[in-house]
Design a protein around this nucleic acid. Structure first.
Length: 445
DNA sequence: TCTGGGGTCCTTGTGCGA
DNA sequence: TCTGTCGCACAAGGACCC
């Protein structure tokens, strides 16, 4: 067991998206409320504890949720608002410590080791944070307190309310795992509670007779390594004794940036997919430029109608941050794919992030094919690297002045209006409106 | 029941140069 | 010259997290 001297908090908002919605719809308090995708391919992002009683939980297909809880109120979700409120929550955290590692909009690790002299022990700080978030933001928050991140995260689960068909049990709000109690606490847990044990790993562990953390601690290392591989075996063995010396990192840099979209109806032609590629590439390029970085490795992700997912990637010498070049890099990969089984999702992401160079190498320039899509006019002359840089700069400045929807790739104009990609706009699947507008294309033979 | 979007990390296979 | 191998980078996929 390590890190006895540190005090780590894991703060996790209770049914965050639903709670934010209830602030503007107080009439829904006490009712089953579900936030998420409203379309046929949507999923649940958050469910109120009243809805959870009926077996509705996050990541459940919305269609299933409707069947399980037909009387629930379904809301489409407002990612932008949740982001704003998340900022307010983090402002509260910041009053207690500058060492905050956000994990998602609704949760974060806080290292309050240095704050104990000023505010009291971990439990006292946790209660103060909860009180401030409740009084000032009208939101519920559960906090786990322990000596490392792994244990603090486990503790926050025990701090939370629980819902079952029998009813809703309020949680304690703050749950502390004392250093000398950690092993006893861990031993009684099912292995599925460990960070990194999902359905597949759980199956492998059960096959070798490991069901609880105590079982895991008792198994001989070679057997565990044979079942899971060296790296994962070492990782889980450490967690089984509560060892986790990871720091709370307040300034983690992103390692990849991307966008992906599931379509209300499968797409069957390169022409349709090419249009989507341009939109996605444009959006990812903009986000890279916002972050002041470029990417060297570009990955195209395709999910077919049968849910089989493939990725194709390419790495360039220079890092790229403009939509023109991204399209040029990924289009050959797209064209090598047969879309005839039906494509339900297309994704574009850049990794290997670094200083943007954008200038193509000599070899790139020799083979440059000149993507015209972002220039906007059919049959326009081939664009060079400097033209693209100028066009990209012009696009950005127009968008800054007139808004996101003011200008974009010509091929992204759908039904007379510009179709833009905004981060989180369809976080939980294509919505109803999109489905209504998106006419089902004839399926090729 | 039929499966989103944004990520991270790990494993395996392959190609290539030393 | 041929072959083996080692390390590295890259490509692709899988598992997992929220």
């Amino acid at each position: 067991m390590t890190g006895a001297q540190r005090t780590i908090l894991h703060a996790d908002m209770d049914a965050f998206y639903v709670s934010v919605e209830l602030r503007r719809r107080p009439d829904l308090a006490g009712k089953p409320v579900v936030v998420g995708g409203t379309g046929p391919r949507g999923v649940v992002a958050a469910a109120s504890y009243e809805a959870r009683r009926f077996g509705v939980h996050s990541a459940l297909p919305s269609a299933v949720a409707r069947r399980r809880c037909p009387h629930a109120v379904f809301l489409p979700g407002d990612h932008e608002l949740y982001g704003e409120v998340s900022g307010q929550v983090h402002e509260v955290f910041g009053r207690f410590t500058p060492v905050i590692e956000p994990l998602a909009l609704d949760e974060a690790f806080l290292d309050v080791t240095g704050a104990r002299r000023l505010f009291g022990d971990g439990a006292t700080i946790a209660h103060e944070i909860r009180r401030a978030i409740r009084d000032e933001l009208d939101l519920g928050c559960s906090v786990g307190v322990a000596t490392n991140k792994f244990l603090a995260k486990l503790a926050s689960v025990d701090a939370k309310p629980t819902a079952s068909p029998a009813g809703i049990e309020p949680g304690p709000g703050v749950f502390v795992i004392e250093h000398d109690e950690a092993q006893r606490y861990l031993d009684r847990l099912p292995v599925g509670r460990l960070w990194g044990v999902g359905p597949k790993t759980l199956e492998k562990l059960e096959r070798i007779g490991v069901r609880t953390v105590r079982d895991l601690r008792g198994i001989d290392p070679p057997s565990l390594a044979a079942a899971l591989g060296r790296s994962q075996a070492d990782h889980l063995s450490a967690l089984a004794v509560g060892a986790d010396d990871r720091e709370v990192e307040s300034d983690r840099d992103a390692k990849s940036i991307g966008h992906e979209e599931t379509y209300p109806h499968d797409k069957f032609t390169h022409e349709e997919l090419s249009t989507e590629l341009v939109r996605l590439a444009d959006a990812v390029g903009r986000r890279l430029r916002d972050h002041g970085v470029g990417a060297r490795t570009w990955t195209l992700k395709i999910r077919f109608s049968g849910f089989v997912t493939i990725t194709r990637s390419t790495t360039t010498r220079d890092s790229v941050d403009d939509g023109f070049t991204i399209v040029e890099l990924l289009r050959p990969l797209l064209e090598a794919i047969d879309p005839s089984p039906g494509v339900r999702l297309l994704g574009v992401s850049g990794s290997n992030l670094g200083e943007p160079t954008t200038q193509l190498s000599f070899d790139d320039l020799l083979t440059e094919s000149g993507s015209d899509d972002l220039a906007g006019s059919e049959g326009s002359p081939k664009t060079g690297a400097s033209d693209r840089a100028a066009a990209t700069e012009a696009l950005d400045s127009i968008r800054r002045r007139f808004g996101d929807g003011s200008i974009g790739p010509a091929s992204a104009v759908r039904r007379g209006r510009l179709s833009t990609v905004r981060r989180g706009a369809q976080q939980w699947g294509p919505d109803q409106e999109e489905r209504a507008n998106d006419q089902e294309p004839p399926r090729p033979r």
